[in-house]
């Protein structure tokens, strides 16, 4: 069975009389160790899907299995446990705690994990070991995003979810971040789900999921994923 499996998942927002189907009955699956990219235009429901997958949001209908666990049926406590032990999240706007240094931000994650990476190792893997004692405000956007990735990696999650991690970054920095994620996926055999509205990135993925208006319009496996370095956009 696949690591991630969406079965006919709906997410509806009721705004008075109108019902908006942000996610409109989607089903797809992602295998373990894959680097999956979700693409789609703005408002397609990508973030909603990721949030449901990350246990931050609940589906209105349908079932989501992660590692044979139906996360739509989990109670509050188990859902937190799920986020705590199974999920790593990288946000578009980094969301580092401004009052903690880079290292401390990573520690924030390692303190609650069962089998965490050493936080120095994590920072080293994102190449920021020298900046470990800097506060977020003292780091550039890319550096902050790398700390954010280090924080997610340090938990050693089953699933690494990234919502437009390069959205606020320039081309080169974005590329470096993507490379870091790809390497992590390859080397650590970690399943990575990455959201982007940038079509150009899709060649680097093992699996491409294309969404439109809350529906998955394409779910294909990329037979020859490319290295990030070889992609230009």
């Amino acid at each position: 069975m696949s690591l991630v499996e969406f079965k006919n998942v709906y997410k509806q927002y009721k705004m008075g009389e109108v019902t908006i189907n942000a996610v409109d009955g989607i089903s797809f699956n992602i295998e373990e160790g894959e680097f999956a990219v979700v693409v789609g235009s703005s408002g397609a429901g990508k973030t909603t899907v990721l949030n449901i997958l990350g246990g931050m949001d609940s589906a209105t209908k349908g079932e989501v299995f992660v590692d044979n666990k139906n996360i739509t049926k989990l109670n509050d406590k188990s859902l937190i446990d799920y986020r705590r032990f199974d999920i790593g999240f990288v946000f578009q706007f980094y969301n580092l705690i401004p009052n903690l240094t880079a290292k401390e931000n990573v520690e924030l994650a390692t303190q609650i994990s069962k089998n965490p990476l050493d936080c120095e190792t994590a920072l080293e893997s994102v190449g920021l070991i020298e900046r470990k004692d800097n506060f977020p405000a003292q780091l550039s956007g890319g550096e902050q995003q790398r700390v954010s990735i280090a924080r997610a990696l340090a938990k050693r999650p089953k699933l690494l979810l990234c919502d437009e991690p390069t959205g606020a970054l320039d081309y080169n920095t974005g590329k470096a971040i993507l490379k870091l994620l790809q390497n992590t996926c390859r080397e650590e055999k970690m399943t990575v789900v990455l959201i982007t509205h940038n079509q150009a990135i899709t060649p680097m993925a093992d699996r491409v999921i294309r969404m439109k208006s809350g529906k998955v319009i394409e779910n294909r496996i990329n037979e020859n994923p490319m290295n990030v370095d070889d992609i230009e956009w």
Binding site: R83, I87, N95, A109
Partner: peptide, 16 residues
Amino acid sequence: NREIATIKVLGFYHKE
């Protein structure tokens, strides 16, 4: 709000 949401995402229990 953001900080709290962040650590909630990270999997902190309510008490924490």
